[in-house]
């Protein structure tokens, strides 16, 4: 084991892992995390704590991860390079580890023009791949950027995101390879609605030997209704939802659409489980955490391994 991460232990044991997402509140109310978190507690192996996602100001991911850890969760600290330079990122990594956080997901982040602080400076001092390398060099070499030694280096289980559906298509697996080479231990993918394209991506990754080196968790998002499907297809960066899925959602009465969305999510989980190299799923039930138990039960994934 490289780290004390529970998620690493689950993945290394070869068991199919489940992670979920918990977005911190727009404010300082720790109870929100308690409420959202109770639907996930002991039902998933680790919880991603988002970092001001879509550039909307929220409680810091370090603070929210710490609170969730105190409630018994295994947090995956998401860190974007959009808002902090290398001084702040490295400092927060020290702090997060000291607070007991053992997993980090290295991201660049959505551009701030999407959020509620459009006039902000976009920092982007590092990119996500440089952040991966930084976290790995801290753990494996005990050094910060520039080569200075660290007393008690943070030893994080290191994650990265990858979007199999973005362009240029030929570049996606090359980028995955770069992330693995830079230090990614696990990958959480963008929400998968086009399983064929994801399977093709995984085949390329497998052929390049990448699935031997990195655990890939397939991103799953249940659609709440046809409106959400259309919104995500049109407005969310890097999302691909095939028309046939949107039509399938539109084909059922409004009050049944949520059930249909969950059905699609469960079917998608079952399909991606069959794809070689898929080590688990990452369930992003956006503001729908209370549906996670139902989805996992339907998918036969509600029993988490004891570690």
């Amino acid at each position: 084991m490289k780290t004390e991460s529970r998620l690493e232990k689950v993945l290394a044991s070869g068991q199919f892992a489940v992670t979920a997402e918990c977005g911190p509140p727009k404010g300082s109310d720790a109870n929100v995390l308690h409420e959202k978190g109770k639907h996930l507690l002991n039902r998933v192996d680790a919880v991603n704590v988002t970092d001001n996602q879509t550039a909307i100001v929220r409680m810091s991911s370090v603070a929210a991860s710490t609170i969730l850890k105190g409630l018994g969760h295994e947090p995956i600290l998401q860190m974007v390079t959009r808002d902090r330079n290398r001084i702040a990122l490295q400092s927060d990594l020290f702090g997060a580890y000291a607070l007991g956080i053992r997993n980090v997901l290295c991201l660049t982040g959505d551009h701030h023009s999407f959020g509620n602080q459009k006039q902000a400076v976009g920092v982007f001092d590092l990119d996500s791949i440089q952040l991966l390398r930084t976290v790995r060099d801290m753990r494996d070499d005990g050094k910060i950027i520039g080569g200075e030694d660290i007393q008690v280096p943070p030893k994080m289980f290191i994650g990265a995101a990858e979007n199999p559906f973005a362009d240029p298509v030929s570049w996606r697996v090359v980028r995955l390879a770069k992330k693995v080479a830079a230090g990614a231990d696990f990958i959480q993918t963008q929400c998968i609605f086009n399983v064929d394209r994801f399977a093709e991506f995984m085949k390329q990754a497998h052929d390049m030997g990448l699935t031997e080196k990195v655990y890939v968790l397939a991103g799953i998002t249940p659609l709440k209704g046809v409106a959400m499907a259309k919104y995500m297809a049109n407005k969310v960066a890097g999302m691909e939802i095939p028309d046939e899925l949107i039509n399938r959602m539109a084909g059922v009465p409004k009050e049944k659409q949520a059930d249909e969305g969950i059905k699609i999510a469960v079917e998608t989980i079952q399909m991606v489980r069959e794809i070689p190299g898929v080590a688990g799923i990452h369930l992003m039930a956006i503001e729908w955490e209370h549906k996670v138990p139902e989805i996992l039960e339907a998918a036969g994934l509600d029993k988490r391994p004891a570690i």
Partner: peptide, 21 residues
């Protein structure tokens, strides 16, 4: 690149266009 990325396109690149606009 709107994010000054040095190691390849982000997940927001679609049809040759930037996620920003």
């Amino acid at each position: 690149c709107s994010k000054k990325l040095m190691n390849g396109p982000c997940g927001g690149s679609k049809g040759g266009k930037c996620e920003v606009n």
